[in-house]
Write a protein that binds this DNA or RNA. Structure first.
Length: 513
RNA sequence: GGCCCCUUCGUCUAUCGGCUAGGACGCCAGGUUUUCAUCCUGGAAAGAGGGGUUCGAUUCCCCUAGGGGCUGCCA
């Protein structure tokens, strides 16, 4: 059995889609599970669609997810270079091999010629296919004399090399996920192998590289299934038919609502991220937020993505990357497309946030805190994180829903004040303020004892006191335990807030009267 | 249109011929809690339709329907 070598082979044409991340994840998991090698290969053969910065984005995205390649551009490895643009000569060489073996031919049809052929077919309600039935009507080395072919090859007009798909054969693919899939070669077109700019198409480059890099398993999206027949034919034509990799075509990730596969448009349409990291494109329409910027933890994204099309067969749902590596198997990948369920993603994130310690969260929150200009100690931030973590779904929410831990209360919940505040208790609450000022140490338990003693003396109930304190301290009825809140804010801040709070409540009460 | 793939609760899924069809998210109800959240308990919720094969089909086969992908000198 050959060692497992898998590759993730994205095209640097923009931000890496979350579906691509899942493909990378599954490849990574198989590699780790089997002690194999995970390779990153950049498929930058389309010069017209190349986007500067996209490769960097891909690497950063993988890094954020914890999916470090064992080989790849900048990662080392014996099978490089790992950028296809740097392997151009190799593809030309194998294209020539195809020609020499009679498995491919030169084609001189211009883009206009091909368009005309397509238009003509469409007019008859058909689809043009450059292949078995049409190749002898086109302009290529099959229909031209050797002399004419030589002249054209030497000319300026350029040429492509097309695979000569054999007639009357059946290609059977044994897909690890789909089972046996059969194609008739008569249905297949003569795919271009080498473009007129000298660069290979995906098909040629992919097969050459997979072979040369000794790839054992091709794990990719289902959109590649239809062209897999061509790929098998190519392996055979190159004489590599006996050492083809095993194929596994992954189910697609579908839109959260509506029809079709998940697209970047769904992100902006539904206000949800569909990219791991934010992407700054040329235009606002081409710029997107990412899971990271949305406040997701990479662990949550990975766990969520792993379950989009795969499951362990047990009832365990929470998996660390290491646990996934252990539990993963290609056999347990499903066949049907999986809808992108953002609610589930949120749930995973919440679970992972809760599982983090205050210290860990504080570390992650620090950049956001700095950005906001808040000046708090690590200890404060850690405790604040502990108090808030069960109440947020996203990292970014800590500083939004819990802003009152870092700056003064912005506004009070009027409904609660109207319902709970009794101006005649002003004196009583001023007494409580005094008692709190005398409370030492200023801990949650001590504060609670002080407050309870106060309530007993004044014959007040929890409902009479706690909501008032809560509103004065945070402005809202939602939030952590009042006593924890007070201990965290500290004696001085609590005194300030109670003072301004009570004054505000009375003022509001007058206005309403 | 052609080719290929897919089809269990709203969603992600378990089931590899014996099912009172299980779990999770979401939803609803109740409980815990000074509030919110967390947490706990309970509930509603599924085998696309039609034929076969079989003692027995969600599970195997066929057809239909629906969904998806591909059909570029893009990947």
């Amino acid at each position: 059995m050959n060692p497992v070598r898998v590759r993730f082979a994205p095209s640097p044409t923009g931000a890496l889609h979350i579906g691509g991340v899942r493909t990378a994840l599954y490849n990574y998991l198989l590699a780790r599970k089997t002690g194999g090698t995970f390779i990153l290969r950049i498929e930058d053969t389309d010069q017209t669609r190349y986007v500067p910065g996209a490769e960097k984005y891909i690497v950063e995205a993988l890094e954020w997810c914890g999916l470090r390649p064992d080989e790849g551009p900048g990662f080392g490895g014996e099978f490089g270079p790992y950028r296809q643009s740097e392997r151009k000569a190799l593809y030309a060489k194998y294209a020539q091999v195809l020609i020499d073996r009679g498995e491919a031919y030169y084609a001189f049809d211009s883009a206009e010629d091909l368009q005309a052929a397509r238009d003509q077919a469409e007019a008859k309600g058909e689809t043009f296919k450059y292949g078995l039935e049409t190749r002898m009507q086109m302009t290529n080395s099959l229909t031209l004399s050797a002399e004419e072919t030589a002249t054209r090859l030497a000319g300026e007009a350029g040429y492509t090399i097309r695979l000569k798909v054999p007639a009357d054969e059946e290609v059977v693919i044994n897909d690890l996920i789909r089972g046996e899939v059969t194609f008739k070669t008569n249905e297949l077109d003569d795919k271009i192998m080498l473009k007129s700019d000298g660069m290979p198409t995906y098909h040629l480059a992919n097969i050459v590289d997979d072979h040369l890099m000794e790839i054992s398993h091709v794990i990719r999206g289902e959109e590649w299934l239809p062209s897999t027949a061509h790929h098998v034919l190519l392996y055979r034509a190159l004489g590599w038919g006996d050492e083809m990799p095993t194929f596994a075509h992954l189910p697609l990730i579908l839109k959260p609502t509506g029809k079709g596969k998940l697209s970047k448009r769904d992100g902006s349409r539904l206000g949800i991220p569909v990219f791991p990291l934010a992407w700054e494109g040329e235009t606002p329409e081409d710029s997107f937020t990412g899971f990271r910027e949305f406040g997701f933890l990479p662990e949550a994204v990975i766990n969520f993505l792993a379950f989009l099309g795969w499951n362990p067969g047990t009832e365990q749902e929470m998996f660390s990357l290491d646990e996934l590596c252990e539990a993963f198997s290609l056999e347990r990948i499903g066949r049907s497309g999986a809808r992108f369920d953002f609610q589930k993603a949120q749930w995973f994130n919440q679970q992972y946030i809760i599982a983090k310690s205050g210290t860990e969260l504080a570390e992650m929150l620090r950049p956001l805190v700095t950005e906001k200009g808040y000046e708090v100690s690590d200890e404060f931030l850690s405790t604040a994180s502990d108090l808030l973590k069960e109440r947020v779904t996203f990292l970014s929410e800590f500083l939004e829903t819990g802003y009152y831990l870092f700056e003064p209360v912005r506004s009070y919940d009027e409904k609660t004040i109207r319902k709970r505040w009794k101006p005649e208790r002003t004196a009583a609450f001023n007494d409580l303020r005094q008692r709190l000022l005398n409370t030492t140490p200023y801990t949650a338990t001590a504060i609670e004892a002080t407050t309870k003693a106060f309530m007993a003396d004044k014959e007040l109930k929890f409902g009479d006191v706690l909501p008032i304190l809560r509103i004065a301290l945070s402005g809202t009825m939602k939030g952590p335990s009042v006593f924890d809140l007070m201990a965290l804010l500290g004696q001085t801040t609590v005194e300030e807030r109670l003072q301004t709070g009570i004054a505000s409540f009375n003022k509001l009460h007058e206005e309403l009267a």
